[in-house]
Design a protein around this nucleic acid. Structure first.
Lengths: 159, 159
DNA sequence: CTGTTGCGTTAGTCCGACTAACGATGTAGG
DNA sequence: CCTACATCGTTAGTCGGACTAACGCAACAG
């Protein structure tokens, strides 16, 4: 139901040996735990993380075509269809054909969508509070800062 | 803690808005990039991350049954079969029926396995160097420390 | 008009995490 | 000994998310 991820069957290693100390492995484990947390939390309010991504993107950057949204959120344009269907079913977004370019749909957030977004924001705040529970406020900031630096560095397309 | 910034329509150009600043999202992105990096790097030496996990586990904790290895590494025991097949094909591990319990196989690492493990260690060192490139040495340490704290916290089976 | 590109959509592949069940074997209780 | 149950290695299969391919359509450049 929740999707994926599980902690190890039982705690795996105990020493910070090669296995456990590797950043890549720690990242994978933590992301697993994080994903599980977020998915469970969001499912309680009938949402998924892509819903939030789309709504937040609409709120921050305004309406746009599906392709635009796809680029903004990182969702594949083939998957965007389904996400928008789900959001439209719930009247959280509006899908209107673009008069200026009849290939496009213009997606915009509805008042209900905004309300829902605020709710999701609250939910996510709480979930992140749980996720980062063992860290002090300063540590959380630092953690996010480091993550951002790393993501940005590798985000620069270099292929 | 994340400041609830005022709901401005669209003026925030570069602010680490809700979407981008969320730790969960940064984690997911970075893990993606990390996984890619590791998989690509390891495939160049005909290996996968589970290979490393098993070999490292054997090296650190000695031989064990497949179920034991499964618990140590977090690999499902149904998937362990395939991993061990691949490793055995390459003569990196030995699979011997346990005389004391005929249900079990005892898996142990071979000299070739140890050699391969050292090679993988080197490869992973390099890959992690690339992964953490934008961070100073002190920052890398801190980063791993924070990750470990978080993973440990959520690892506590509290269900 | 012609070829190229971007759009939304459908269908389908690929892969890793995870579940279920089997036969063979071990263990414990009566 | 018999019965019940747990554990092991293994096979098969489900499930979901990331990703690709190709279609019909529209825009645009020449």
């Amino acid at each position: 139901m929740t999707g994926k991820a599980a902690d190890m069957p039982h705690d795996a290693t105990q020493t910070p040996g090669r296995l456990r100390g590797r950043a890549s492995r720690l990242l994978a484990q933590l992301t697993n735990q994080s994903d599980r947390l977020m998915n469970e939390g969001l499912s309680l309010v009938d949402a998924r993380k892509w819903h939030y991504a789309v709504l937040a993107s609409l709120h921050e950057f305004g309406p746009g075509s599906q392709a635009t949204l796809s680029r903004r959120t990182g969702i594949f344009r083939s998957d965007m269809v389904g996400v928008l269907n789900e959001l439209a079913e719930r009247d959280l977004v509006e899908r209107v054909p673009d008069p200026d370019d009849r290939r496009r749909n213009v997606i915009s957030i509805t008042p209900q969508g905004r309300r829902h977004l605020r709710r999701l924001d609250k939910v996510l705040d709480d979930l992140h509070d749980e996720l980062l529970a063992p860290l002090t406020s300063a540590e959380r900031t630092e953690f996010v800062r480091l993550l951002t630096r790393l993501v940005d560095h590798h985000g620069h397309a270099h292929s």
